[in-house]
Amino acid sequence: MNAKTTLPEIPVDAETQRRVEQFLFREARLLDNERWDDWLALMAEDIHYWMPTMENRRRADKNGTYAIDRGALYNDNLRDLTRRVTRFKQPTAWAEDPATRHAHVVSGIEVYQGGQAGEFIVHSTFVNYRSRVEKDNDLLVGRREDVLRADGDGFRLARRKIIITQSVLMAKNLNTFL
């Protein structure tokens, strides 16, 4: 993985760390419970929500494993995320009925000062397990790099980069957010 943070890693105080962790844990619960509108409300107006696909390239290949102008499963702004949520909420979203059961497990949360005042760079790892009907079970594991922005008493998500381990997605679809 070639993720690089150029900013120095300046840790935050324990209270900020705790509040960021609570934000991410609550976000995971909203997704587990299909509270799509509440989840969308956590996004900043200028959200960039990005999940590139992984290419197998030789280490010497300077093009790297992923890039912003290459394949992606998400490369979304708020309009795009809202469109995806609109599909989830349709009674004709056949692949969501009966409901998919989700578990979003978030761990390894590190919080650092961001580049702007009131912004935080947040690293975390995740395990996502989805189960559908009798025995469709899909597992995704990866790492996220977020930019959270202070907003009143809470935060908004301004940037998210999601790096999964799979290069061939071992599932028929990706009917969740990570």
Partner: peptide, 10 residues
């Protein structure tokens, strides 16, 4: 453009 996106369908 943009590389190849790969997935498995049963």
């Amino acid at each position: 453009i943009g590389g190849c996106v790969k997935s498995v369908i049963q």
